[in-house]
């Protein structure tokens, strides 16, 4: 008569399934690195050229910072958020189409492991694109201003990029589990994510808005992510740093709870 396996026999399930899924996520976008990392970089370069160089020369900020320097931290965070979102959502949506996601449900991956593996997978892609965007921004700075852009607080920069990247990967996961078709998925991107990011202060300072729109913007959690990064790079921000930290962390907790609920109760069956 066989003995029931003891709980110790399952210790290999604590980290290994998570690490495997995370590595799969990273390998997935590295396989198509041109479209996952290089393409967003082209977008960032165009933004820098059109807004930072061309239009930016006629924009004067009250703080006296060159508009190009003001724009770079925003673009860095936008690249991080967008790519973290894209990675998690496209991984799930394509997996639902191919049947790949169904595998996750029948292997010993817990909902938490799925959420964290996809979150970190998205974050790492976000950080890669963000770093490259910053490097391209430095080239524009050197050419246009004649000097490189320094980083006021590297740890704060890393903190906000990580919180933002994780949060947006979780949003991507929630959206992909919610979506029933490819069209629904792109609608979520177009009608929710892009407006939130664009209105979160990537291209403008809160001080340039009327009081009404300033108050509206304060309800957009992206404002805090983006201003956190802006503070980390420039040492200046529209929103107090502590407030940015608190709102960003609370947003992450809320998005994690929603992502966990989506995985726990979502359908893994193929489309």
């Amino acid at each position: 008569m066989k003995q029931k396996p003891s709980s110790d026999n399952f210790s290999h399930l604590r980290w290994n399934p998570f690490l495997s899924l995370l590595w799969r996520e990273i390998r997935r976008y590295l396989k198509v690195v041109f479209q996952t990392v290089m393409t967003p970089l082209v977008n960032s370069a165009l933004y820098l050229l059109i807004f930072g160089v061309s239009l930016g020369s006629s924009i004067q900020l009250q703080s006296g910072i060159p508009y190009l320097a003001f724009l770079i931290p925003g673009l860095v965070m936008m690249a991080c958020l967008n790519n973290a979102f894209q990675n998690a959502s496209s991984s799930i949506v394509s997996g639902k189409f191919s049947g790949d996601v169904e595998d996750w449900k029948v292997v010993p991956l817990s909902p938490s492991q799925i959420v964290w593996a996809l979150s970190f997978g998205g974050l790492i892609r976000g950080l890669m694109v963000a770093a490259l965007t910053f490097l391209v921004g430095q080239v524009f700075m050197k050419v246009e201003i004649g000097e490189y852009l320094g980083i006021h607080s590297p740890m704060t920069l890393l903190f906000f990029l990580m919180i933002g990247g994780l949060a947006f990967a979780k949003i991507g996961l929630i959206a992909a589990f919610y979506a029933k078709t490819f069209d629904q998925m792109s609608a979520i991107g177009a009608f929710v994510i892009t407006p939130l990011i664009f209105l979160g202060g990537v291209f403008f300072s809160l001080e340039n808005l009327s009081e009404f729109w300033q108050n509206v913007s304060l309800y957009n959690p992206m404002l805090y992510f983006i201003n956190g990064v802006r503070y980390a790079v420039l040492g200046q921000t529209d929103v107090p740093l502590v407030k940015s930290i608190v709102v960003s962390c609370l947003s992450l907790v809320a998005f994690h709870a929603a992502a966990y609920y989506s995985v726990k109760n979502g359908r893994f069956q193929r489309w």
Partner: peptide, 16 residues
């Protein structure tokens, strides 16, 4: 995007 061997490696990893 994955090859047969890669798929099996990932799948094995899911089982620890």
């Amino acid at each position: 995007y994955f090859s047969v061997e890669e798929i099996l490696k990932f799948h094995s990893g899911y089982f620890g």
